[in-house]
């Protein structure tokens, strides 16, 4: 297990920093150009959600390794209002039809593993992993 690197998200500019850090770590692990771009897009979506809906939060990256595979883990944590209807925001078409981009279903598609915990008034935590193939 590697060490965690985190980026705090407060301003829109921080989204760019998070993308850069995510891409650098992905590159170091050995991800190709396409996957680097996908990981960066997933970071964008997660960081943007923090920027838009929570006052503050952070995105953390970690290089992970099991016996037979390597990958990148990303965790986005915020202390925002929480998601009241998770099924709704995970529905295809919900985010895109509002012009909000690929949304959480997009993140789920870009990555290999996806988990989400959200409590009202306490915040949201999204954990995703992409494995190196």
């Amino acid at each position: 297990m590697g060490t965690q690197s985190c980026i705090n998200i407060q301003k829109e500019w921080d989204i760019v920093g998070a993308r850069q850090l995510g891409r650098d770590i992905a590159k170091k692990i050995g991800f190709g150009t396409v996957d680097q771009a996908r990981i960066a897009t997933a970071v964008s979506e997660l960081a943007r959600n923090i920027y838009l809906y929570a006052d503050s939060g952070k995105v953390c990256f970690e290089a992970i390794e099991t016996i037979d595979k390597k990958g990148i883990s990303m965790i986005a944590i915020d202390s925002g209002p929480g998601i009241s209807d998770i099924s709704l925001v995970m529905q295809d078409g919900y985010s895109t039809s509002r012009g909000l981009g690929a949304g959480l279903p997009g993140v789920k598609r870009l990555m290999d593993e996806f988990d989400l915990i959200s409590e009202k008034e306490q915040g949201t935590e999204v954990k995703t992993i992409k494995w190196l193939r």
Binding site: A37, T41, D92, T96, G101, A102, G106, R109, L110
Partner: peptide, 10 residues
């Protein structure tokens, strides 16, 4: 192209 790819999957 990444977002177009996502839209296509959606």
């Amino acid at each position: 192209m990444i977002s177009y790819g996502l839209a296509h999957q959606e």
